[in-house]
Design a protein around this nucleic acid. Structure first.
Lengths: 157, 157
DNA sequence: CTTGACTCGGACAACTGTTGTCCGAATAGA
DNA sequence: TCTATTCGGACAACAGTTGTCCGAGTCAAG
């Protein structure tokens, strides 16, 4: 089980976008994070489709967050890039084979599916509790101020 | 993000093995669940490596649980088949690019990684709370008794 | 004790999904 | 009007998972 690597990039991009007041291009975001520009563009498309960022075309265009940082949860980004499908999907094994349980007796979901579903729910709930604003606060607290200022300046240029 | 489909099979096998007193062959388990015999064998190998089941060779051989059903958690099976690696892996983007944070200033993990780690922990904790015995109790409560008896008989034959 | 048939175990392909790249359509500014 | 610059979706390469096979080892019966 592996989450898409684009989730990490997407979250970093949201943090950066929140700090910059003006639109930032995909190329700049890619260079800043030292990742493939073309591939990061795809992740930004996913964020755009999900309505988390808005893109403006032409000169001096780029990406901007559509909401305030404290209105965007980590779960929003994860689901936008990695999808909303739960990791476990019940295939109803109990309805197959020589000792199959008839479908009309399967009104309640399989206990295995229920267990997985419950775990998935607490996982998502945990991610929903953290917002981009929380991440930013943590970054501001743990990274040297001169680097933060440098990054802000580098983005402007 | 998608969990290996073998996890579902492995859990069903554990439930069945717990009910049968004698060793059950991979072929029988595959036929009972109507899944590929060769592929299920691989999942059983993983369970064997993890020490959850013990295999006996030769005639009248097969698989048996090594512990009582209430001593095996769902998480045990998930980690045996799907691996113990967390879904999210931090690639330390902050240490890359033109505004890289020097490694010696990165003693605390990235807030993104911390968030993901925390979610992963509650997910695993949720799965650890449920044992095979719990699943069996649920199955016994929700499936028609005649089918349970039939399956037990079918396994013996 | 010999034989024989049956078991699991690891090595070998096929396939789906993710990762990565490219060029065209559309846009804002000069 | 024109040009430079932007994003967006279509096109390959790679990896991991899924699926299959045959050989080594083992127990039971004769």
């Amino acid at each position: 089980m592996k989450m898409s690597g684009g989730v990490e990039w997407g979250l970093h991009c949201c943090v950066v976008l929140s700090g910059a007041g003006a639109p930032v291009t995909a190329a700049k975001l890619a260079e800043l994070h030292d990742v493939s520009q073309s591939y990061l563009a795809k992740q930004l498309q996913l964020l755009s489709r999900a309505g988390l960022v808005r893109s403006t075309l032409g000169q001096s265009g780029g990406y901007v967050l559509t909401r305030a940082a404290n209105e965007i949860t980590v779960l929003d980004v994860v689901e936008a890039i990695d999808g909303v499908e739960p990791a476990f999907r019940c295939t109803e094994v109990r309805q197959r084979g020589p000792m199959a349980v008839p479908a009309e007796r399967c009104d309640t979901p399989c206990p295995i599916a229920r267990t997985m579903d419950s775990a998935d729910r607490v996982w998502r709930e945990s991610l929903r509790r953290v917002t981009i604003a929380d991440l930013i606060a943590d970054v501001n607290r743990t990274t040297p101020p001169e680097i933060l200022a440098g990054a802000r300046e580098w983005l402007r240029a």
